[in-house]
Nucleic acid binder design. Structure first.
Lengths: 349, 349
DNA sequence: CTGAAAGCGCTTACAG
DNA sequence: CTGAAAGCGCTTACAG
């Protein structure tokens, strides 16, 4: 049980811990922040007190002293609601941990990008995070770069020098999925491409074709259908692929929304997923676990990427404040191949 | 442009504003917090300075002094990923505004509820927010109540005395949707019920039947199918309803996931939505705008309810600290009927 | 109606 | 390796 004075409601502070351990608040601070130069005896005494008292540092107090409360802007255009929710969750989690403030701006048209960026700048943000697809808008990046504030591009397929980025390796992700399908025994695999404007699109498609080629399989052009990352375009693309004869035994879609559409089309044709047809997606957004069967897909750690974006941003802001040069970090997060119920070996003939 | 000293990176503080306006920091504080007893001249001078300097209060500083940094626990079990994301977004937004800290615990089985609640309590939370379906777990509420910390139940269908709650009026929401369908001209409407364990389920179903009765329409028992709020059960329920002869011209589903399933089943039967069949949902989660056609549904302001839950919680915590009695607030948020592409008048015969 | 002083919880920088 | 002092940005009392 935490030793909180229930009458006053006051939380346990670093001072309480210090008193309890018989040391100075500084020593407690050093221990909880993993600083070196703390004697082992002290360290253990402090840790014990922290535990018995149920102490948790007050983040407001910490950030007030430490970071000087950075202000981070997030500029987004029209990603899927599910993606954005998850991404913002990561952003807010991390920024609350660091006591930084977040300002969110949406822009719809290309024209309003300029206005939205201005609004953020006028609000005094110290840097701007750009989720997809804005992460690839040269226009927006240039506009922001001109004001010399740090920019972090998230989930871009083509990280630029000078612009900090967080992403997964889209190529390797799509390659892993293709290999998984091959390993299950599939040979006739249809692929649904995404919006050509988005930079990961080409990488995912190239990885699919390369992995197939590696396995000595030539993919007929009509086995690659064009989608735009939306459910609706997935419907059309899947219908095209499933009209092919012989019919593909698997469809690998560039994202989950289109994969969900493919499952629906398959059901409509009386095909059972996965017994008659395997369908896999990419991203692992909530829709992947909403539909039935749940989608085998490539998990992209969207919330974690949001958190990473904040951490990188804070680092850049600090560097700038200290007059140090840009770190020019390009963080690549791990994807995971998540096997669920929409994939299985191909039906026997 | 904000007047931030770009060289040092230091943000504009209340002191800068005070200096610029030629007043004391206190006066600035009063103005930005809308306190009374500030002269009009002062107020305007301060406001002008705030604007030219682009001042934004540092929330860490404020909360450090004001609230004493409340710690809010969120305990959830197995809601849909999409719902939880959106809800947590609201929670984090508001708590970052108030400088409170959030601790999240998940429990899966009924057994782990106890353990999860304990963990939160041991971490020293000042109160616990319960999203659905835990908002209706008498067990959990009792366990929490025993420790005398405030509890806020979110989206419960049956608010309890003594337990603060935020919700929408499920009955009126479902009634509005039914009336909308009637108004479009539908008479044979199928309904998909939700999980009977969830308290809003009964309300939504009752509202549907009542509204139909009001219109003088008797709903045959086979026009109400049982679902469990999942896509999979929606598939089955929709198939049942669409096997009816004459076939319903509309299906009203108790949530979006099952409505999405109904659309898929309809497509599978070669029915066009909405020309041949109208399908509507409830909640307006991201899936409603992911699928095609996009769902007409009852919008539940999930993120706003998360924010409200935090605000109510903070109020309760403060009351308790001050030794004041519980406010016993039961906030009812507005739902909105959102018309999208999945609904239209019934086909002519 | 306005302001000077003190302090929220923490850590930086300076001593030992 | 440890600690006393000062201060991050704000607001709560307390004076006028």
């Amino acid at each position: 049980m935490p030793q909180r004075s229930r009458r006053t409601g006051a939380a346990v502070t670093i001072l309480d811990v210090a008193r309890h351990a018989g040391v100075s608040p500084m020593t407690v601070s050093r221990v909880i922040n993993d600083h070196p130069y703390v004697g082992d005896t002290m360290r253990e005494r402090v840790l014990a007190s922290v535990k018995t008292l149920g102490y948790r540092p007050n983040l407001a107090g910490r950030s007030l002293r430490t970071s000087g409360t950075a202000r981070i802007g997030v500029l987004y255009s029209n990603p899927s609601a599910a993606y954005l929710n998850q991404f913002m969750l990561g952003i807010l989690e991390q920024s609350s941990l660091n006591g930084s403030q977040v300002m969110i701006e949406k822009c719809s048209g290309i024209r309003s990008q300029r206005a939205a960026a201005r609004r953020l700048l006028e609000a005094g943000v110290d840097g701007v995070i750009l989720p997809p697809p804005l992460c690839d808008s040269q226009r927006t990046i240039d506009e922001l770069d001109a004001t010399r504030i740090p920019v972090v591009a998230v989930a871009t397929g083509t990280p630029m020098e000078g612009v900090t980025s967080v992403r997964i390796d889209d190529y390797q992700g799509a390659r892993a999925m293709t290999r998984y399908l091959l390993q299950l025994g599939h040979r006739r695999i249809g692929f649904i491409k995404g919006d050509p404007q988005h930079t990961p699109t080409a990488l995912r498609a190239a990885a699919f074709l390369d992995a197939m080629a590696e396995a000595g399989i030539e993919v007929p052009p009509d086995h690659v259908a064009q989608g735009m990352f939306t459910y609706r375009t997935g419907l059309t693309a899947a219908a095209e692929l499933l009209a092919l004869r012989p019919r593909p035994t698997a469809i690998f879609s560039s994202n989950d929304d289109m994969a969900a559409a493919a499952v629906s089309v398959a059901h409509g044709m009386g095909l059972h997923v996965p017994d008659d047809l395997t369908v896999t997606g990419f991203d692992d957004t909530p829709v992947a676990t909403t539909i039935w069967p749940e989608l085998t897909t490539v998990h992209q750690p969207v919330a974690a990427m949001g958190r990473a974006a904040v951490t990188l941003m804070l680092d850049e802001i600090r560097r700038k404040r200290d007059g140090r040069p840009k770190a020019d970090t390009h963080q690549v997060m791990k994807f995971t191949l998540v096997r669920r119920q929409s994939s299985s070996p191909p039906p026997r003939r």
